[in-house]
């Protein structure tokens, strides 16, 4: 069996006294699109922050290429983070820079790129996401979908092994969302990038995901392929895929 790119073992984390993640374990394999799903407040974003090394767990391990992230010192963590691209829900582009400068920034700061080539590399990345003409535009001049694509181009700037994408389709029209899904599939095929995507969009999950992880109240409810999910009778998973409302939504969240 192929070695896992990310291994999470028995991850437990707290915000104050509140246990946000409770014994979460799973693997992410190289080159796959791994989607993390679950209701609001179930710990998806917290899990993502742990996998980027932004938060330290109370206990448990997160191994990236075999190395435990929690054991890394600041320098080693920074090197590891260069191998990860993050595309944020609201794009996270720096408003004071042009789109091109946003993408060139990690190349200049961390990349071992020929400075003469940076301009063309920026155009290359922008072309991949269909924004070859937006190099000199400011982020504020772009539409929501364009900003997300520019954010993805910046996440891909250093050709990372792994890209985290937080809510790619949130706030986009169906056409734009479908375009972004297609783009993720293309990037996976062409750049052999592994994607870990946090989403709620059922259509995207069905179209893009290789495997899914479902969290509920900090615990793993399901981890497997779409076919396995379709055959699975776990009530919370069925409820999610069948878009059934939760009768006791407020009580659940207060527990």
């Amino acid at each position: 069996m192929e070695k896992a790119l990310i291994e999470v073992r028995n991850l437990i984390t707290h915000y104050g006294d509140f246990r946000v993640l409770d014994g979460v374990s799973f693997d992410v394999r190289p080159g796959e699109i791994f989607m993390i799903i679950g209701g609001s407040g179930c710990g998806k974003s917290t899990l993502l922050k742990h996998m980027c090394g932004l938060l330290k767990p109370t206990s448990g391990e997160i191994r990236f290429n075999g190395r435990n992230i929690a054991d890394l010192d600041e320098e080693a963590l920074s090197v590891m983070q260069h191998a990860i691209g993050i595309a944020f829900q609201s794009s996270g582009l720096f408003n004071s820079m042009t789109v091109g400068e946003n993408i060139a920034m990690p190349m200049r700061e961390f990349g071992e790129v020929d400075p003469e080539l940076i301009d063309h590399l920026v155009r290359f990345k922008l072309s991949l996401v269909g924004l070859s003409n937006a190099q000199y535009q400011m982020p504020g001049e772009l539409s929501g979908g364009m900003r997300k694509r520019a954010g993805l181009a910046r996440a891909l700037a250093l050709d990372p092994e792994l890209v985290y994408f937080d809510e790619p389709s949130a706030g986009l029209d169906p056409i734009m969302a479908a375009g972004l899904d297609e783009l993720i599939l293309k990037m996976k095929g062409l750049l052999k990038t592994t994607f870990i995507i946090v989403t709620h969009e059922l259509e995207s999950i069905r179209l893009v995901a290789d495997r899914i992880l479902m969290l509920d109240m900090g615990r793993v409810v399901f981890c497997g392929t779409l076919d396995e999910a379709a055959a699975c009778e776990i009530p919370r998973l069925r409820q999610f895929f069948d878009r059934q409302p939760d009768e006791f939504i407020s009580q659940r969240n207060l527990d």
Binding site: R123, S127, G130, S132, N133, A134, Q135, Y136, K186, L190
Partner: peptide, 22 residues
């Protein structure tokens, strides 16, 4: 193969002039 897919995505940038700075 993959090279063809790359070139399809790059086609607009390969065939048109780069955008000019303001």
């Amino acid at each position: 193969g993959d090279v063809s897919d790359f070139l399809r995505l790059l086609a607009p940038a390969l065939t048109s002039s780069p955008p000019l700075p303001r």
